[in-house]
Amino acid sequence: MNEELLNILQTLVTSSSPLVIAALGETITERAGVVNLSLDGSITLAAAVGFIAAVGSGSTLIGILAAMLTGALVALIIVVADIELKQDQVAIGFVLTLLAASLAQFIGQSYTRVRGPELPFVSLTFLKDIPFLGPVFFTDHNPLVYVSFILVFATWWWMFRTRPGLALRAVGERPESAFARGTNVNRLRYIYTLVGGALVGLAGAAYSLSIKPGWTNPPAMRGDGWIALAIVIFGGWHPFRVVLGAYLFAGLRAISSAIQRSPDVQIPLVLINALPWLLMIGTLLLVSSGAIERLLRALPRSAQVWTRNILRSDPPAALGTRFEEH
């Protein structure tokens, strides 16, 4: 196996881990029927708070906890505004997107380019010796990368293999039915929005404590929150597809930057920056129902069924709606 390719893939796995974590967090939240639109702001704020806490305490663990708390807190505002104050989730989420980013910039001001603690790099014994998989997935990653692996399986297992997972999905699909089975719909929405928010915060910490260490203005992770949101849709609210989406996205990004390096391709440098966004629209187009159906009609009938099953991306039926018991 080509060593350069392994290097590139290994870097890819590292650098896409925050996207994986944030998109999983949002998947959990949306599965419970709540949209946390604030990702682009809350990741940034969590990164700032996490870094400041890590610098202040000298401990990356405290930084991580602070970042998770921050993400959860932003999510809490959304869920309180939704359930208790009956305000539109999208509106509150959007305001928080801007507010959290500004707040991050303000509190981060005196920490710009300050050196702080960083997460260590760890290799996993035994696993790192597996050919191909070892060097790519189990060598020299920060611990949060491994956390992201565990999270993917844990989220899937929790959602699709446990009893509480049934309740989680039911709350997002049909809250009336969940209520009929004794599930406290709004309490679960609180819990999972907070859990999802905490993961979004964790993604922020992964940036500021390892992937893009430190704090800068403008924040280096700006824009990734929107991409994470798009990945959730592309991933059809399923953990495996979500992680696939995140890796795919990071991979295409890497390819687009490689294009610039190729001497044969004459594309103005700045236009390469358009690619992630074109990619985002493209992926959403692919999973949007209208486009799929048009695409499918071109296929033979037998192929239509399974292609639809793979590409279909139905949101939780009660996503963004409010539930009142009576």
Binding site: R163, L166, R169, A170, R174, S177, G182, A317
Partner: peptide, 16 residues
């Protein structure tokens, strides 16, 4: 009927 359309029959049965 108050089931969850996205669930299979056995999931609907089990839930609750």
């Amino acid at each position: 009927p108050l089931d969850v359309p996205a669930f299979t029959v056995v999931e609907n049965f089990l839930y609750g």
